[in-house]
Write a protein that binds this DNA or RNA. Structure first.
Lengths: 198, 198
DNA sequence: TGACAAAGCGGAGCGGTGTTCCGGATATTA
DNA sequence: TAATATCCGGAACACCGCTCCGCTTTGTCA
């Protein structure tokens, strides 16, 4: 008998075996489809690849955000855990912040259309947005605070705003070779380092 | 007899009067609908408000981008013309750049979902993107060059990248009170002013 | 003025997508 | 094995972008 996870996130208690199998199949299929067709791929396509009906997907993942969150949960978790590690290993808090933002950008940039979907005008993907913020904002805040304490950057920047700005800058990165979000993010960090606007 | 406009943009030559009336009705209706429902409002809705069929809209504005461009052409034009004027009237090239970017942000921020749509992953709105860049990039380049020549900002920043970054930062501005794109844009400009990263 | 051709119009219809619903299949338990 | 709670599949409905074609309106010319 498996011990119940504290959050009960994927608790196997009293669930039929085929339901679990299907949930796994959906996750695998979704991960594959997202790579080629982006996170907005039609549900029918994911269902077909997983060999299940559409209702099965909706049953396990009521909103698209739930599905996307489940698919990327591990990578988000890894990004969150990297924060404190970088703070311990990097040469300076500022360097740690730099490297962590690089990780964050890598995550967003390798997911076809993820950044685009995240900041959409409506609240599609609201659940994913919430999860991402809940998990990563404290990490970003810790890195920011450390850099401020070390005198590397000016105080006053809100972690939520910074993360969201970085996410926004990553949108549509591959639609034009003239646009490279990393250069602008670098500029943003330069702005943070400026000691103080008189 | 009206003189033909140089670009032939809305040339009235050899067009039926009802066609012109309808085109105007569509533009008016679209402008109204965009305010409440955003630039992604269903074509049917705009058609109903204008009192025309959907085909009439597609006939005058083959793509959605054409319609949006026509609706906002005057404002884009005004923003383009403001560039040189600001350069002449502001205290410094840097101040002119600041003020012009403020205008640009005002334009984007008051259009429900415009920024969102502009940078979408696919090339919906490609025509609008092209028009905006063609018209505003030279203006932005002129302001940047002047600021560089005056020694106000570091060289090397591409106007296209800057404009696009600013546009991206304006996405989803009203979905969370914690997010204020202007603060981040200010940070970006601070980064530009930093004399030189060693 | 009146008729004719060209220009323009409207909305039904097609293809695609999200989401729901329910009769039927399946796993689990006794 | 039989009973039942659980779960499944895809048909069905709603909505949207876009096209197509029979019909209407307009401008023109005798």
């Amino acid at each position: 008998m498996p011990t119940e996870s504290p959050m009960g996130k994927v608790s196997a208690r009293s669930r039929r075996a085929d339901a679990l199998r299907n949930q796994q199949a959906v996750l695998t299929a979704a991960a594959e489809v997202f790579v080629t067709s982006g996170v907005d791929a039609p549900i029918r396509q994911i269902a077909a690849r997983a060999g299940v009906g559409m209702a099965t997907i909706y049953r396990h993942f009521p909103t698209r955000a739930d599905l996307v969150t489940a698919v990327y949960r591990h990578q988000i978790e890894a990004c969150a855990e990297a924060g404190p590690n970088l703070l311990a290993s990097a040469d300076s808090p500022l360097a740690a912040l730099h490297q962590w933002i690089d990780l964050f950008v890598d995550f967003l940039a390798t997911k076809h259309g993820l950044a685009d979907a995240l900041q959409s005008d409506t609240n599609r993907f609201a659940a994913l947005h919430t999860y991402l913020v809940d998990r990563l904002e404290p990490v970003c805040a810790q890195l920011l605070d450390a850099a401020v304490d070390a005198g590397d950057i000016r105080p006053g920047t809100q972690p939520y705003e910074l993360m969201r700005g970085i996410g926004n800058l990553c949108i549509g990165r591959d639609s034009d070779p003239r646009y490279n979000p990393r250069r602008l993010i670098e500029l943003l960090l330069q702005g943070l380092q400026r000691p103080r606007a008189s």
